[in-house]
């Protein structure tokens, strides 16, 4: 299945891109996606303790089971105001 991944804030600089697509096996979780992304983008792995994850517009955690076409966003802690 295809998962669309977006990076926000300085995660775009860490990965060198704002979006990417990952192909994963059916039943994969966000944790599986992160493992793949951390291999591709080692600088992102260094931030894994402070990475926030959303699917669509809702926050999710590593155990969330992905579906084909999900839009996953990764970003650092928010700083509005």
């Amino acid at each position: 299945m295809r998962i669309n991944v977006s990076f926000h804030s300085y995660f775009k600089e860490l990965t060198g891109c704002s979006q990417t697509i990952e192909e994963l096996l059916s039943g994969s979780t966000i944790g599986d996606l992160l493992t793949r992304l951390h291999e591709r983008f080692p600088k992102l792995a260094a931030m894994k303790r402070s990475t926030l994850i959303a699917v669509g517009v809702e926050y999710q955690n590593g155990s969330y089971v992905l579906k084909d076409g999900d839009e996953v966003s990764l970003f650092p802690p928010v700083q509005g105001g």
Binding site: H8, S9, Y10, L52, A54, S73, V78, Q79, G81
Partner: peptide, 14 residues
């Protein structure tokens, strides 16, 4: 609202 916004609303500053 202000406290929670700073925890949950995806806005970043540079």
């Amino acid at each position: 609202l202000i406290d929670e916004m700073k925890r949950f609303v995806p806005i970043w500053k540079k």
